[in-house]
């Protein structure tokens, strides 16, 4: 590939890495990654992947920027309040790197659209904050044999793992969404803003590693951290032979939409 002088300079710190080099940067520029949710997790993911020169970035979110988002969703600025999140995000992504292509979907993922959207992407990142979406994304990616990164944050904690075909999926760990009455009302869901950055950058790193084919992914491992103690650990996971979606004899064969708490639609 012929890099332009600007590209050589822009990506020089990647090219310098033995594990990346010109060939790796070329892979990044050719890669397509879908970010589901332009919120707390989506913000650092979108910015870092844009900066890294991931050539095509899809970003999907149905919301508009709200003042209460700005405490952690660093891709949106005060002047963006009221603007569709995907538009605000695209604007910043192109500012950080005009070299890439950003595709926006001002929508939420649901059973009827998700397979069609993810089919064009090499890697999917879950940056949502509700269980319905998380299970839907898992099921769709397993069905479509797409790798994806799961992420969740709450209060001072975060968790993430990476699924690739043949490895443990979300349902291997969490068989089904928690009962509706167990999910506390969203008004009480506080989160320390910087946690989103901590976890989102881990997810972005996983996407980059996957595209580059380097290192060990968080497959069959759940990485968890608590920021108050600033303690990180990972727990090994096993693929569940009786998993309702990824086992040899799945019981779930088509996608269904879960019921969403009204305000839970808002991504982190």
């Amino acid at each position: 590939m012929n890099f332009t002088d600007d590209q050589i300079e822009r990506y020089s710190r990647h090219i310098l890495l033995k594990e990346v080099g010109g060939a790796g940067q070329e892979k990044l520029l050719k890669a397509k990654v879908l970010i589901i949710g332009a919120g707390g997790l989506g913000a650092p993911i979108a910015l870092y992947l844009a900066a890294a020169g991931v050539g095509t970035l899809g970003i999907i979110d149905g919301d508009r920027v709200d003042l209460s988002n700005l405490q952690r969703q660093v891709i949106h600025f005060t002047a963006d309040v009221g603007v569709p999140k995907v538009e605000s995000a695209k604007d910043k992504m192109l500012q950080i790197n005009p070299d890439i292509n950003v595709i926006t979907y001002q929508d939420i993922v649901y059973s009827k659209n998700i397979l069609d959207i993810i089919k064009d992407y090499d890697f999917i990142i879950d940056g949502t904050d509700n269980f319905s979406a998380k299970f839907l994304i898992n099921d769709a990616c397993v069905m479509a044999k797409k790798p994806y990164s799961h992420g969740g944050i709450l209060r001072f904690d975060g968790q993430t793992f990476t699924h690739t075909p043949g490895h443990a999926c979300y349902r291997c760990v969490f068989k089904e969404p928690p009962p509706k009455n167990a999910v506390p009302t969203c008004s009480q869901a506080g989160v320390l803003g910087a946690i989103a950055g901590m976890l989102g950058t881990v997810q972005a790193t996983e996407a980059l590693k996957y595209i580059l084919g380097i290192g060990d992914l968080l497959t069959d491992r759940l990485l968890m951290f608590n920021a108050l103690k600033m303690n990180f650990r990972s727990v090994n996971l096993k693929k569940n032979p009786n998993c309702p979606i990824c086992s040899a004899t799945p019981t779930i064969t088509e996608l269904v939409d879960g019921e969403l708490p009204v305000c839970d639609l808002k991504a982190h």
Binding site: I153, R155, Q159, Q188, A189, M224, N226, N231, D264, H268
Partner: peptide, 19 residues
């Protein structure tokens, strides 16, 4: 034994991962 928590919405009375 590992307690693995749902994460991604809701509230817990205490930090879920206290290592």
């Amino acid at each position: 034994i590992e307690f693995l928590y749902f994460m991604g919405g809701g509230r817990h009375s205490r930090s879920v991962y206290e290592f």
